[in-house]
């Protein structure tokens, strides 16, 4: 079902049906988006649930100024960024390095199915600041257009391109140090 048809359903008073179609169409995509930002499955699941509760509550306020899918990605990304900030804050108080924590977590995660190179790439991504990480993941893995990422992140296309460029170079540099 097209996004405009889902919105049409919602406008005709069939909120539950519209929400069901949104969940059917986007839950898996959003899960993978969140999972690539936040490698842990349990955390990703929590963030996804929070995301859909917010979507359900905010649906009456949805204006068609933005596309449905960028609106959904914005909520999911904001939830993930809030979670990442909170974790970073917690790590500061416990004097731990959250990037190292994440890298060692991915290494021992039984749900990580990648090879050595993919592991190095994930470790490199874990070192990026949260917003840069979001831009990199959306552009590199999901190949979302800059214009849409701009809508999702609320950042200008120019600033996004610069951010992606920085992130890309950092990842390349990390892989070079790893011997690739």
């Amino acid at each position: 079902m097209e996004d405009k048809d889902i919105i049409g359903l919602y406008k005709s008073g069939q909120a539950e049906r519209a929400f069901t179609f949104i969940v059917r169409k986007y839950s898996e995509r959003l899960y993978w988006h969140i999972r690539q930002l936040e490698a842990d499955h349990d955390d990703a699941d929590d963030i996804l649930q929070e995301t859909f509760i917010k979507v359900w509550n905010a649906l009456p306020a949805f204006r068609e100024d933005s596309k449905l899918y960028t609106w959904l990605y914005r909520i999911a990304t904001n939830e993930s960024l809030t979670f990442l900030k909170r974790r970073k804050l917690r790590a500061t108080f416990t004097l731990r390095d959250p990037d190292m924590d994440m890298a060692s977590f991915i290494e021992s995660d039984p749900l990580f199915d990648g090879d050595e190179l993919q592991l190095s790439l994930q470790k490199a991504i874990a070192t990026l600041p949260p917003k840069q990480k979001s831009v990199f993941v959306m552009r590199y893995f999901h190949e979302i257009k800059y214009e849409d990422i701009s809508e999702i992140m609320g950042i200008s296309v120019g600033a996004l391109k610069a951010s992606y460029h920085h992130a890309f170079n950092k990842v390349q540099e990390y892989l070079k140090k790893e011997g690739y």
Partner: peptide, 23 residues
């Protein structure tokens, strides 16, 4: 660019139902 992560068995299949029951 391929996804190196896996979801637990049966998680994605029950995802829609779980979110809808939450809603």
């Amino acid at each position: 660019k391929s996804n190196p992560f896996k979801a637990p068995e049966g998680y994605l299949e029950s995802l829609e139902e779980r979110i809808l029951s939450l809603a």
